[in-house]
Simulated scan of single mutants.
Amino acid sequence: MDIDNGPSEGSGNGTMDIEQSLLQQFSCMGTTDKDELVQQLQKLLGSNLNYSTAAFFLDMNNWNLQAAVCSYLDIESSTKLPSMALVQNPVASESESIEPNTSFDKVWHMFNNGTEQWPHGCYAQCSDGNIFNGCRVSVPALKPSEDTHLTVRMTSPPQPGVYQSEWRLCTEKGAYFGDPMWVIITVVEEGTMALTQQLSSFSELGASPPAQVAYNPFVPQRSHLEQTQDATPPPGGKDMW
Score class of each variant (00 low, 15 high):
30 G>V: 00
31 T>F: 00
31 T>E: 01
32 T>C: 08
32 T>I: 13
34 K>E: 14
34 K>S: 07
34 K>W: 06
35 D>H: 07
35 D>I: 00
35 D>M: 07
35 D>R: 04
36 E>G: 02
36 E>S: 10
38 V>L: 01
38 V>A: 03
38 V>H: 01
39 Q>T: 12
40 Q>P: 00
40 Q>M: 08
44 L>R: 01
47 S>C: 04
47 S>D: 09
48 N>Q: 15
49 L>Q: 00
50 N>C: 13
51 Y>M: 09
52 S>Q: 14
53 T>F: 09
54 A>M: 02
55 A>N: 03
56 F>S: 06
59 D>I: 02
59 D>V: 05
59 D>F: 10
60 M>D: 08
60 M>V: 05
61 N>I: 10
61 N>C: 15
62 N>T: 09
63 W>R: 05
65 L>E: 00
66 Q>P: 12
68 A>Q: 05
69 V>H: 01
70 C>G: 09
71 S>L: 04
72 Y>I: 11
72 Y>P: 04
75 I>E: 04
75 I>S: 03
76 E>Y: 13
77 S>M: 10
78 S>W: 12
79 T>D: 07
79 T>Q: 09
80 K>W: 10
81 L>M: 15
82 P>C: 02
82 P>K: 01
83 S>T: 15
84 M>C: 14
84 M>F: 07
85 A>D: 11
86 L>M: 12
89 N>D: 13
90 P>H: 03
90 P>V: 00
94 E>G: 07
94 E>S: 11
94 E>M: 04
